[in-house]
């Protein structure tokens, strides 16, 4: 039994390492084949080139899609973070009947099949006479981003010692002044983190954009269109690599900020510090 106890962590950690490899496997091949001279992704590489990357800025459709994605991503992240702030503040600060149900409803898009969420919204938008455009894509992205925004923000708001705001009032500060001088600086990292998370999700989101857009393509839709042509694969791989890199950088910053926000508020129990 003691032998097993010593053996288990070792076995588990090799399993964990293998599992991480499995998780990163597909992510690794995109950059590798994006610098391959041949169009077919297979080993061994026939040669190394940055040719596919150099071609990217020369594709007008891609430039358009990039702008569209940025526009949608920025709008969606701001809107969903604002809605997320309101909801997260309400959930963490107040107690009222129906609170859990409302929270459940707001978080629901996280566990519903995206296709069904997308076609439902499509139906309503058509019924309401909205013509499909980047605007409808933003509306859809906001819905699926809010749950993530909520998750990030509640972890930042939770444990926010209410006596900090009381202390501010006690020292003569008005309600607005307290918000500006205490609440906002304390939760700013969580808010920025939420903006980054939502932007990343919107940037990578395909299904909802696919159903809700009119003629304008976002980056994932552009990629989807290119996938039909085998010859265009390396270009898609290059673009995909850049997107991966962007997501990676944004998410790392978001995670660092989220932790900082959580640490700030959690420390403020004051009793253990």
């Amino acid at each position: 039994m003691t032998a097993m106890r010593r053996f288990l962590p070792g076995w588990l950690s090799s399993y964990a390492t293998l599992y991480i490899l499995f998780l990163y496997l597909p992510v690794i091949f995109l950059p590798i084949f994006s610098i391959n001279t041949a169009a077919t992704p297979k080993f061994p590489l026939s040669g190394i080139t940055l040719h596919w990357y150099e071609d990217l800025p020369k594709t007008p459709a891609l430039i358009d899609a990039t702008w569209n994605s940025l526009l949608v991503g920025i709008s969606a992240s701001i809107l969903s973070t604002v809605l997320g702030i309101l909801a997260a503040r309400s959930i963490t600060r107040y107690r009222y009947p129906g609170r859990r149900t409302i929270n459940g409803l707001i978080m629901a898009p996280l566990v519903l099949p995206e296709v069904i969420v997308a076609i439902s919204m499509l139906l309503v938008m058509l019924q309401l006479g909205l013509s499909l455009s980047l605007f409808t894509v933003v509306l859809g992205h906001v819905l699926v981003c809010i749950p993530y925004s909520m998750t990030v923000l509640t972890s930042g708001f939770e444990g926010f010692d209410r006596s900090l705001e009381e202390a501010s009032a006690d020292l003569g500060e008005s309600a607005f002044g307290t918000f500006r001088r205490v609440t906002l600086p304390m939760v700013a990292p969580a808010i920025i983190s939420s903006l980054l998370v939502c932007f990343t999700i919107s940037l990578d989101e395909f299904i909802i954009a696919f159903f809700l857009t009119g003629t304008e393509a976002t980056l994932p839709i552009y990629i989807w269109g290119q996938l039909r042509f085998a010859a265009k694969l390396p270009g898609v791989l290059a673009l995909g690599t850049l997107l991966l890199l962007a997501s990676f950088v944004l998410m790392t910053i978001a995670e660092i900020l989220r932790r900082r926000a959580a640490r700030r508020t959690q420390n403020e129990g004051g009793l253990h510090a």
């Binding site: 010692d161 006596s163 900090l164 009381e166 202390a167 501010s168 009032a169 006690d170 020292l171 003569g172 500060e173 008005s174 205490v182 600086p185 304390m186 700030r264 508020t265 420390n267 403020e268 129990g269 004051g270 009793l271």
Partner: peptide, 20 residues
């Protein structure tokens, strides 16, 4: 009269030191 306009000041149990 709200807390911010009273001639009293408080030392909180958790101290409520602004962490930022």
């Amino acid at each position: 009269i709200p807390a911010n306009r009273r001639p009293t000041n408080m030392v909180f149990q958790s101290y409520a030191i602004f962490p930022h």
